[in-house]
């Protein structure tokens, strides 16, 4: 293998960091005495849909936030497409948890989507017709075109989630990171979101989703990353999403009946 030799003599491609859209090494995050994420390694596969799975409080969202520099890790290294995060920000789109923002904020649906274009617009660039057209196109892709002029507080939870996804689409990224996009949304929204995510994958983009619904993992995702503060398992769904790994991640918190059900679904 040519080039790309890091300081300690290990080639980046050998270690898998070079090609991965998002690679995390030795990541530890703590909100107090107790670490929320402890010494986690993760290598996201390009062009795949990956689910981050684990019980409540297992550090799923924290892992995502630390990888994105939203929270500061105690230690660890993050590379995005083989480079430091700061150099690759334009290639990342992030959809936060819906409940993390104040939906009474005085703004309209279209304005939220236009936030996805703020890198292009810069500090003082004017919003022009082509920016508006791009935002409307993104709203159309999530089935929210008719809501462009609504105040965001007037939307249902599922509609708000779709607006967030439209904002991410407007960013035109190569790597999409979504934090619980299916939490508390209606069935129609879940269908619309998964259709958009699958179209992104078909276009060669990489999608990572913090996910809580174990029943849909096999339908929606190619890869899983199981976490419970530490990494439990990582790999293709058929290998890493098993009764054993689930038991290890959830411990007693997952009913045996649920594990049996999943085992049967997995065949």
């Amino acid at each position: 293998m040519l080039g790309l030799v890091s300081n300690d003599g290990v080639t980046l491609e050998d270690s898998g960091l070079g090609e991965s859209p998002l690679a995390v090494r030795g990541l530890t995050v703590s909100y107090g005495q107790k670490p929320a994420v402890f010494s986690v390694d993760m290598t996201v596969q390009p062009g795949a849909m990956t689910a981050i799975i684990g019980p409540n409080g297992a550090g799923k969202s924290t892992l995502l936030k630390a990888a994105l520099g939203i929270v500061n890790p105690l230690s660890g290294q993050v590379t995005v497409f083989g480079q430091p995060l700061e150099a690759q920000r334009a290639r990342i789109a992030y959809v936060p948890q819906r409940a993390s923002v104040d939906w009474d904020f005085p703004t309209r649906v279209i304005d939220v989507v236009l936030m996805g274009l703020s890198r292009e617009l810069g500090l003082l660039g004017r919003v022009r017709a082509r920016h508006k057209a791009c935002a409307m196109d993104c709203l159309n892709r999530v089935g929210m075109r008719d809501f462009a002029d609504r105040q965001i507080g007037q939307l249902s939870g599922g509609q708000q989630q779709r607006v967030f996804l439209a904002r991410a689409l407007a960013q035109g990224a190569d790597l999409y990171l979504l934090d619980e996009p299916f939490a508390g949304v209606d069935a129609a929204t879940e269908k619309a979101i998964i259709a958009v995510l699958k179209s992104l994958k078909e276009a060669g983009k990489t999608v990572v989703v913090v996910h809580h619904d174990l029943a849909t993992v096999t339908d929606y995702f190619d890869h899983v990353f199981l976490i419970n503060t530490r990494k439990v398992a990582e790999g293709p769904v058929s290998e890493a999403f098993t009764a054993e790994t689930l038991q290890a991640a959830y411990g007693g918190r997952l009913a045996t009946a649920q594990i049996d059900q999943i085992s049967r679904a997995l065949g």
């Binding site: 936030k65 994105l68 520099g69 939203i70 700061e86 920000r89 990342i92 789109a93 992030y94 936060p96 993390s100 923002v101 104040d102 904020f105 703004t107 939220v112 936030m115 703020s118 890198r119 904002r167 960013q171």
Partner: peptide, 10 residues
């Protein structure tokens, strides 16, 4: 509006 998103766009 959205501090987390703001940080991800730099």
């Amino acid at each position: 509006f959205d501090e987390g998103f703001a940080r991800t766009i730099g």
